[in-house]
Design a protein around this nucleic acid. Structure first.
Lengths: 157, 157
DNA sequence: GTATAATCGTTATGACTTGTATCTATCTTC
DNA sequence: GAAGATAGATACAAGTCATAACGATTATAC
């Protein structure tokens, strides 16, 4: 039962058979980034969804929750907890719109803008270190390839 | 309420502000692939985790559940339902190992090997169509970049 | 050789994310 | 004004994933 190759344990068990699948590699890379990005945002009290929300609100002041949900590709109900949390922490303001009293106009507060700036800097620094092995061209190619895959899968040609 | 630019609705609300982040693009691409791959495997009665398990078992006949869990990067408890399901469907066999009666030796059954072949073909066909916009070089670069990111994040140099 | 520690598979459990159905209030359309 | 659509919210279900703990078995220490 030492050097036998009867069944298995001679050769190490690896995921080599899954490596040819691009989807598998994409999942693994995403897992790494997800965990790492989470660790980066955690000290700031943010999650990926709350950070993303701050970014989109900062770029589109006055937007509604439905618009935010669409931009983030999440369902409306799942955004309620996010806006609640951001409001409770004083990072965004929700003002009623006179012309349409169903909707809220979301805007960053001063504290929200400050935190967003900090978080953006932290995320950029983190991405820079995570993509240290890649050249600028590599990153550009990667972005382009990911966008093409997303576009193909989404069906928008 | 038509042409005013007081606050917002003049310019469309998009995720443009998130696009510079590679992590965001990676997540979106992964979401697309995940949904698409799920739809591809569903007719065969497989999920990504069961498909991945079949691939690794087929490549490492006789391995233990702990080895399989390590190769798939999932915790051991989460693999129990997977092996249970595959065993119940007669796709894999679990034989006790005389030299270590704690472990099971996992192997594909004939039916399992047949289904794996079908699924592999389906997944490959699907990946081919999904990556239609990419050249062979693009795919190779993408694979390399993803592997580098994973390696950097995992800490293994 | 026996006591201690470690491992395998398992069960139970909780945290987290995400989607669906439904409700009220409000706006739009006819 | 009535019917339908939309915004936000609530409740709920389903899926993923990690941790703690247990019995059975093996490895290690003394």
């Amino acid at each position: 039962m030492s050097g036998g190759e009867e069944t298995d344990t001679a050769k190490k068990v690896t995921d080599a058979a899954l490596r040819p699948f691009l989807g598998f590699n994409l999942r693994r890379a995403w897992n790494v980034i997800h965990a790492d990005l989470g660790a980066t945002l955690d000290p700031l009290g943010l999650r990926m969804i709350t950070f993303s929300a701050l970014v989109v609100i900062g770029d589109n002041p006055g937007l509604s929750q439905a618009q935010l949900a669409a931009a983030l590709s999440v369902e409306r109900p799942n955004l309620v907890a996010v806006t609640d949390e951001l409001t409770r922490r004083g990072l965004i303001s929700r003002e009623r719109v006179p012309s349409d009293r169903r909707t809220y106009a979301l805007r960053l507060t001063t504290a929200g803008a400050r935190l967003l700036a900090q978080a953006t800097e932290a995320v950029h620094a983190h991405e820079t270190s995570l993509y240290a092995g890649l050249t600028g061209d590599d990153r550009a190619h990667l972005l382009g390839a990911l966008a093409k895959i997303e576009a193909t899968g989404t069906g928008r040609s």
